[in-house]
Design a protein around this nucleic acid. Sequence first.
DNA 1: TTGCTTCCTCTAGTGGCTAGAGGATCAAGC
DNA 2: GCTTGATCCTCTAGCCACTAGAGGAAGCAA
Lengths: 135, 135
Amino acid sequence: MNLSIGLLAKAADVKVPTIRFYEEIGLLPEPRRAANDRRVYDADAVRRLAFIRHARQLGFSVEAIRNLLDLSDNPERPCGEANALASRQLHDVETKIAQLETLRSELRRMVTATCDGRAADCRVIEALAGPSADA
Amino acid sequence: MNLSIGLLAKAADVKVPTIRFYEEIGLLPEPRRAANDRRVYDADAVRRLAFIRHARQLGFSVEAIRNLLDLSDNPERPCGEANALASRQLHDVETKIAQLETLRSELRRMVTATCDGRAADCRVIEALAGPSADA
DNA sequence: TTGCTTCCTCTAGTGGCTAGAGGATCAAGC
DNA sequence: GCTTGATCCTCTAGCCACTAGAGGAAGCAA
């Protein structure tokens, strides 16, 4: 299975420059090169890149992913670390949801209380200007 | 009411370099300077900066805030623009919440199905590696 | 006077890419 | 064989919204 960078990009649904970027920061190993100096990937690269993409979608930082890949590359090591990372991630996500829910209600208040007049009377601006919700 | 940049920072709960940054990108007007070249602010600056801070907390981009400030500086203009900005913002927030809720359930699945063994058996890594949830 | 804090300007770094310049190579059609 | 367009290469710079740090001047208290 020999893939060009473009095909790998399609296979893992990631943009081409992103792959080169991941290689640069060491998330992906340097692939072998064809005679024409082009990168050649195999099925392993697809799996690894899919792993990275999925983790990124879940909001893991590159640093966290580096740790996870490290664990997955060394399957004999205890996996407490991976669980810890996932819990931390879950906690972050829950915090963020709570914050966004606060913002949502504030924005809803703004939007439903529309004025159709001059900006001077605008509730949106008023709501932003006022010292109302300093949570 | 004469405030140093440090006092303004405290008054609006914003860091000092951030104020200079906002000045640089034109969100805050250049303040007058004391004889010793230090910036001097008034109550207006506090209000404007609090407005900015609040809007940033609500997730408005600097560009959006520029528009909102523009409206609030010109109160005779119609405020439909402000409402449109707020609605768009609300929509973005709702989208983000929905996404995060998906992530949350996936992370919960990962975290609750903990293994206490080797990384090889780790559900977290498995969940990230697998083609499971390509939503 | 000593020492601490605040202020000034300027440059560079953060994260996670993305865009573009400038050029080489490839594969397909005529 | 030649042209055309896609893909690839490297390298640099840009995005957003700050944040950190260098290097120095000025203020303020004991």
